[in-house]
Simulated scan of single mutants.
Amino acid sequence: MTRTPYPAKPAQRPPVRHSVVLRDVVKTYRTGATTTTVLDGVTFAFPRRTLTAVMGPSGSGKSTLLHCAAGLDRPTSGSVSVEGTELTSLDEAALTRLRRDRLGFIFQAYNLVPTLTVRQNVTLPAELASRRVADSAARDVLARLGLGGHADARPAKLSGGQQQRVAIARALLSEPAVIFADEPTGALDSRSAAEVLGLLRDAVDDAGRTIVMVTHDPIAASVADAVVFFADGRVVDTLHRPSADAVAARMATLGAARPNGGAR
């Protein structure tokens, strides 16, 4: 009697070394007969469990890069992968699920619902996804961010730094693999900005998150593991283990190279 061999085990996928990978990404916008190129063949990989700052002159394409990397906008051509999943091949429903389940977002404008309490704002994304959040989990993340005494407050009763911490708590509660932050300290005073940057750094060092942060502030960029510099829709330089002075000096050379603004 011939025994049927067991089927071969599927090959294990190699561990993902980079959380976000962009390959030859182009993004153009058309207004009438005019086509504007905002991202011009960007190829870059953001390593896992790191905080990377993205910097560049106004209009250089850094926010568009963030939106394409996060699946909030689709590139005109090229590919974007997040945690090994190719975004450009997903339909809108699948893309929405991936953003909801695997990604976190922190924006300068906070995007809090003013009629909801802090606790309700933090748990809202999970509730919209029909996913139950344990009260203990919500209490824990609020306590870690210094918001334990504000769980029942409305956003209007909080300072700017406290509101941004609510936005961070909301992003962390779903335990995302990647957090995208667009100018998270841009509207904060220096003390609140330092607190928020410390929280983002802890999310990488203690919780193993990957953070991609657009910023214009050399001090904010100095907490990152690396800074990626953008100009005219392209990556022009990368600075590892940055200092605020080194970042400011490199930004000055980018500005000097664009005497007419060069905004796109």
Rank of each mutant, 00 (worst) to 15 (best):
F107I: 11
S19P: 07
P176L: 12
A263C: 03
A126P: 03
R17H: 10
D40E: 04
E195F: 01
G71R: 00
Q164F: 10
A153P: 07
D202H: 05
T52G: 04
A8T: 14
A226T: 14
A93T: 12
A246I: 03
T88L: 01
I168P: 02
F105I: 00
G208K: 12
A257Y: 03
L87A: 00
H18F: 15
R264N: 09
G261Q: 15
A246H: 13
V235P: 11
R132N: 14
L128Q: 02
D101E: 13
R139A: 14
Q12I: 09
T238G: 12
V214Y: 05
A151M: 14
L239K: 10
R48C: 08
Q162A: 08
A244S: 15
Q163A: 11
L173D: 00
R258Y: 12
L197A: 07
S190A: 13
L39N: 05
G56N: 02
D40S: 06
A129N: 06
P259K: 03
V113F: 13
S136L: 09
P14N: 04
T96S: 06
M251G: 06
A109E: 13
V204F: 08
A256T: 05
T52C: 05
P125H: 09
R97Q: 08
T28M: 08
L72N: 11
R48Q: 13
P184F: 00
V247T: 08
L116R: 10
T64E: 02
A187S: 14
G198R: 13
K157F: 07
P184S: 09
A33G: 06
G186T: 02
V26N: 05
R201E: 15
P47Y: 14
G32R: 08
I168K: 08
R49I: 00
T52N: 11
K62L: 13
G262K: 14
G198Y: 10
M1E: 12
V16N: 02
Q120G: 02
V54D: 02
A169V: 03
L95I: 06
L142Y: 03
V16Q: 07
R99C: 00
G160W: 02
A138R: 04
D217K: 10
Y6H: 07
S79I: 05
D91A: 02
A221V: 06
Q12W: 00
R49Q: 10
L254Y: 01
R119K: 05
P114G: 11
V247W: 02
M251R: 03
D189V: 05
R99P: 01
S130P: 00
L197Y: 04
R17Q: 10
L51G: 07
R99Q: 01
A181S: 07
T215L: 11
P5W: 10
A33D: 14
D152Y: 06
V223S: 06
M251I: 05
A70K: 00
V20R: 00
R144N: 09
A177H: 06
A226G: 02
R3S: 12
A69N: 01
D202L: 10
A246W: 07
A257H: 03
I106T: 04
P176H: 01
V26E: 02
M1P: 08
